[in-house]
Amino acid sequence: MGKMIHALSTGLPKEMKKDGMKRSIVTGIKKDRVEEVFLTKDGFKGDDVADKRNHGGPDRAVCFYPLEHYKKWEEELGRVLPNAAFGENLTVTNMLEENVYIGNIYKVGTALVQITQGRIPCSTIDQYTEADTLLKRTIETGFTGYLARVLEEGTITSQSTIELVEEHPEKMSILTCNQVYFANEDWKAMEEIASIEPLAEDWKRRLAKRMDRLKQQS
């Protein structure tokens, strides 16, 4: 089955106040479908994040989320989720976390992107979807989506094809990375992940800190 774009979405940070929230927050999670957009090294034109410490930047320029998970979450929640509920730019089919490897290079439209890390979800997902379980469940399952850097800028449309140009030889899947990252106890597995050159610098730093701590404890 071919890899397809189900939705191409962008959005700028804006104030969000939902029922049950004590105060409003500024977030870029709400994104609207677009038909065509230019992708730069820093991300899509007309798209941005509010929390630049934990989101965005060249290693996290593009956010993917598999469409297949929506059915599971909607069944669990008993309702339909909004477009790009996880703040993703590309809602895609046939690109599950278990089949996408760190360092994989994909041609999307005329752009070239490289997978860098699993998405580390935050509480904004629960606030945006008005669910109190989605953050916990994405971490438990490892169905977090994933992020990419831009190797070549280009134009992407909602009809663009996604082509695997180069599969990274280490074959370290996003799902495996998530399972190790969130379990937070196997420093040897962390070492293996951290050694993969295309891994996002932020993940390399986070894993290095954890490995040091675990080695000291052992």
Score class of each variant (00 low, 15 high):
residue 39 L to R: 05
residue 40 T to Q: 10
residue 41 K to M: 11
residue 45 K to V: 09
residue 46 G to I: 02
residue 48 D to Y: 06
residue 51 D to L: 05
residue 51 D to M: 04
residue 53 R to Y: 15
residue 57 G to D: 11
residue 58 P to V: 08
residue 59 D to R: 06
residue 59 D to Y: 06
residue 59 D to K: 06
residue 60 R to E: 09
residue 61 A to I: 04
residue 61 A to F: 03
residue 64 F to G: 04
residue 69 H to G: 06
residue 70 Y to H: 02
residue 70 Y to M: 01
residue 71 K to S: 12
residue 71 K to M: 12
residue 74 E to K: 01
residue 76 E to F: 10
residue 78 G to Q: 04
residue 78 G to I: 04
residue 79 R to Q: 12
residue 80 V to A: 13
residue 80 V to K: 12
residue 82 P to C: 14
residue 82 P to W: 13
residue 83 N to Q: 15
residue 83 N to L: 14
residue 84 A to M: 14
residue 85 A to W: 09
residue 85 A to Y: 14
residue 85 A to D: 15
residue 85 A to C: 11
residue 86 F to H: 01
residue 86 F to E: 02
residue 88 E to T: 15
residue 92 V to P: 04
residue 93 T to C: 14
residue 94 N to T: 12
residue 95 M to A: 15
residue 95 M to P: 06
residue 95 M to S: 13
residue 96 L to Q: 12
residue 98 E to P: 12
residue 99 N to D: 13
residue 100 V to F: 08
residue 100 V to Q: 00
residue 101 Y to E: 00
residue 102 I to P: 07
residue 102 I to M: 06
residue 103 G to I: 08
residue 107 K to I: 14
residue 107 K to S: 13
residue 108 V to W: 14
residue 109 G to S: 09
residue 110 T to A: 05
residue 111 A to H: 06
residue 111 A to N: 06
residue 112 L to M: 08
residue 114 Q to N: 10
residue 114 Q to E: 11
residue 115 I to V: 08
residue 116 T to C: 15
residue 116 T to E: 07
residue 117 Q to R: 04
residue 118 G to W: 02
residue 121 P to M: 13
residue 121 P to C: 13
residue 122 C to A: 11
residue 122 C to K: 08
residue 125 I to Q: 03
residue 125 I to W: 07
residue 126 D to N: 10
residue 126 D to L: 13
residue 129 T to C: 04
residue 133 T to F: 14
residue 135 L to Q: 15
residue 136 K to L: 05
residue 136 K to M: 07
residue 138 T to S: 08
residue 138 T to N: 10
residue 142 G to S: 02
residue 142 G to A: 01
residue 143 F to V: 03
residue 144 T to K: 02
residue 146 Y to Q: 03
residue 146 Y to D: 03
residue 146 Y to A: 05
residue 146 Y to P: 11
residue 150 V to Y: 00
residue 150 V to D: 00
residue 151 L to Q: 00
residue 152 E to H: 08
residue 152 E to Q: 08
residue 155 T to D: 07
residue 156 I to F: 03
